[in-house]
Design a protein around this nucleic acid. Structure first.
Lengths: 191, 191
DNA sequence: TTTAATATATGACCTTTATCATATATTAAA
DNA sequence: TTTAATATATGATAAAGGTCATATATTAAA
């Protein structure tokens, strides 16, 4: 028996990780299968041993990213829910995020998903609902945010990041991110 | 001299209009030149008599849409600034808008623009700043919204529409739109 | 009714790219 | 050190699509 069981699995994860990075940066049509594979030191030939096609990879990489997202991280024990929520907002509305460090698919793939298949949309929806639930859960322990407030905050921060990516002036971007950070914190009860 | 001066101009506008509709619906790569032309009763051959290429059309259609956008419409005389702003929000956060009736490029092309050239991004930025200015102007006459509030509201409504397009459950979409309508109105001083 | 200028259509080209068939390389076990 | 199973690479194919050269159609003026 050649190769250990974990080898293919590791390669697969490498592809998924790299694919998510590329897809969020350039969109489904902006990346070639070749590019996807060379980006992790492989060639296109090996691709179909791992995935049935480009669309399948797109969907899988989305699911992969969802499960390893920062928002689904569990809160460290030594800080309060409120403080943790503040940190999540800080990270989400940061230049690092806008520049593609651990990109959130909700912001980076917002319009890209529209032209993808149903499965991609369902995954997107699941991630979106997960985000709302996460924020809702954290707020419930210290305040009493209603659904309107949660939904408007997620739209705000997703929108802010999506918009920021297209603005080239960093000053404008910073202002936008700071503004949304303040308003989102206020809506969520002084975070 | 064949053809009247206005003929080509009318055709050009027809192409621009139709192109904007298609680009917002399916993204730059999701539409072919063939499709763009057949959508207004022409064939691809005629295309290059009007535009230097697909990218050029994308940029021009974006500018065209910007100049004919609802947000740049002037307010009717018989209603207040506040009421008019309310109507703008109603329209923006409506199912019609989400379904592609007079689509706002800020929401519909948010991530699509990222892979386009500098010119497209500049146009996007201009439209974005115009939207902020418009809302700012209307609010100043009855209230005293600061920049943070304006910027967070535009992110919110743009984000809401972008997200809504990917959610298939209409109930969820309606809830989201209504929530953002309420919160945006509140932030803008009870609109 | 011609005609010249312009608009539009047709056909072809060439590049890109997803996909697949086949060949080669790799590695754990015998 | 073989060997069999699996992973990866190479080469080929075919389709799609942007672009352009050329042909045809249209129309205002002569």
């Amino acid at each position: 028996m050649p190769y250990t069981k974990e080898h293919k699995d590791k390669t697969r994860k490498r592809i998924l990780q790299s694919a998510f990075q590329l897809f969020t940066a350039k969109g489904f049509d902006g990346v070639t299968v070749n590019e996807l594979m060379e980006n992790c030191g492989l060639t296109r030939g090996a691709f179909y041993a791992h995935f049935s096609g480009k669309s399948a990879l797109y969907n899988e990489s989305l699911k992969f990213a969802a499960s390893s997202s920062k928002l689904s991280e569990l809160k460290p024990n030594n800080i309060s829910d409120k403080a943790w929520l503040g940190q999540l907002l800080d990270g989400y509305l940061s230049l690092n995020h806008v520049n593609g460090i651990r990109p959130c698919p909700l912001a980076f793939l917002a319009t890209d998903i529209v032209t993808q298949d149903q499965e991609a949309k369902e995954t997107y929806t699941r991630v979106y609902e997960g985000m709302n639930k996460t924020i809702m859960d954290y707020t419930q322990t210290y305040s009493s945010c209603n659904e309107n407030e949660i939904l408007s905050v997620t739209s705000m921060i997703i929108g802010a990041v999506a918009i920021s990516r297209t603005l080239k002036d960093q000053k404008t971007v910073s202002t936008l991110l700071v503004s949304c950070r303040l308003e989102a914190g206020r809506i969520l009860g002084g975070v």
